[in-house]
Design a protein around this nucleic acid. Structure first.
Ligand SMILES: [Zn+2]
Ligand SMILES: [Zn+2]
Ligand SMILES: [Zn+2]
Ligand SMILES: [Zn+2]
Lengths: 240, 240
DNA sequence: CTCGGTCACTGTTCAGA
DNA sequence: TCTGAACAGTGACCGAG
């Protein structure tokens, strides 16, 4: 196990970056409203939803986003979305996961150095920057992009995995598996179940799927694929 | 097919960076609540007695213990006292002699992932089973659970996959992965995305889950994991 | 009130044991 | 491998407009 992980580190031998982690969490957050003070609904950070301490750079923002924006602007930092999708969630719990997406959201929310309250964000082309990775909804475009993104995602996942807990789950495995199986209504011997048809072609049109059921299947499917894939790559041990 | 995979492995050759971190602080209301004692902050690590660089994870700790604790928690490591007594000395000179005892002392000293200053360390029996020990100490941290869950899913899936029949989808793999990822706008660290509550117990009832979105996320997660896992197991080799 | 500045704290990195 | 010092970000807090 570990051995494998070590390999990971060598992986895309390149720069640095990070990915993961934690944060904090804080559950006891109610000591705010001073007596006599009515809390208005506008007490939320327009960027991450955390509690806002007032307006900052034009919008209601929390200390964190305020500081983040301040630093970013002052140092003229430019970030890059590691995921490549430019769609990372930005909320209190994840705001530190992707600076690029956080800054983007700050801008879209209307933050600006001068503190103007109503700036026109629309004219601003928010996707300019991410255009490169912007294949978001229509991956059909270029294969290159697809692979690139795919790789990127994978890479991130791997990196993230390095911090994963260990194997102790061994035993719980069967149990959990069962539960999940049930939960996702994953058929034990799912492979035959989903008729894994032609992938790419089919998937492409499935794009605009709204049918949750189909989604589930699709995912199940992919999971299987992935699973067997890994299987393929290390057929060795017999499982019992 | 080979092509795709190979590309992936080489790919992220260029990135940039992005770093993350979290700052946390918050609940720092009262500074020196020391009973009757308001002397300057202890400069000693409460665990090993080395010089403390400040509070870490809730208590005064040195860099070493801080890092050690962080790693242990993050990866949910469980150590075993070689001596078997669980009473190894933990001081600056010997802190690296027995991880089990070091971690135990960290916990007893009140270290905790959330940085709460006053946690109740009472009733912790020294020689409890390590696993349960751990569990009881980090039970509710949602994040923790998430990681654990992720790991579990991963391993389950992998194990399970080993028993799978087919092997054809090779090529479709990366593609599929990508498409799905994009579809659900897989965030960098999809794990925290879904609030995957307590596993086994909860899952059981969650069985009849109603929120399709959550399902999607959950699946994404396992997918990523699986992906990275398989990747882990074959860093660069061409498929055969 | 919001702003810039501060700094205790965090996560990450990476030689070195 | 694991450890822990060094580094880069974070955000609660505070004094000045
Ligand atoms: Zn915010
Ligand atoms: Zn992003
Ligand atoms: Zn110490
Ligand atoms: Zn010991």
């Amino acid at each position: 196990m570990e051995a494998h992980l070590s390999k990971i580190s060598t992986l895309p031998a390149s720069p640095t970056e990070s990915a993961v982690s934690v944060g904090m969490d804080e559950s006891r957050a109610d000591k705010s409203p001073a007596p006599g003070k009515s809390l208005s609904p506008a007490l939320l950070c327009k960027v991450c939803g955390d509690r806002s301490s007032g307006k900052h750079y034009g919008i209601y923002a929390c200390n964190g986003c305020s500081g983040f924006f301040k630093r970013s602007v002052r140092r003229k930092l430019i970030y890059r979305c590691q995921a490549g999708t430019g769609m990372c969630p930005v909320d209190k719990a994840h705001r530190n996961q992707c600076q690029a997406c956080r800054l983007k959201k700050c801008l879209q929310a209307g933050m600006n150095k001068d503190g103007d309250e109503n700036i026109d964000v629309t004219s601003n082309e928010p996707e300019r920057t991410s255009s490169e990775y912007q294949m978001s909804l229509y991956p059909s475009s270029s294969l290159e992009n697809v692979y690139e993104t795919s790789a990127r995602l994978l890479f991130m996942a791997v990196k993230w995995a390095k911090n994963l807990p260990v194997i102790l789950l061994e035993e719980a495995w069967s149990e959990l598996f069962l539960l999940c199986a049930i939960q996702w209504s994953l058929p034990l011997d799912s492979c035959p179940l989903l008729s894994v048809p032609e992938l790419s072609p089919t998937l492409q049109e499935t794009r605009g799927l709204k049918d949750p059921e189909q989604v589930e299947n699709l995912q199940d499917q992919s999971q299987v694929m992935l699973g067997q894939h890994s299987r393929t790559h290390y057929p060795s041990q017999p499982v019992r």
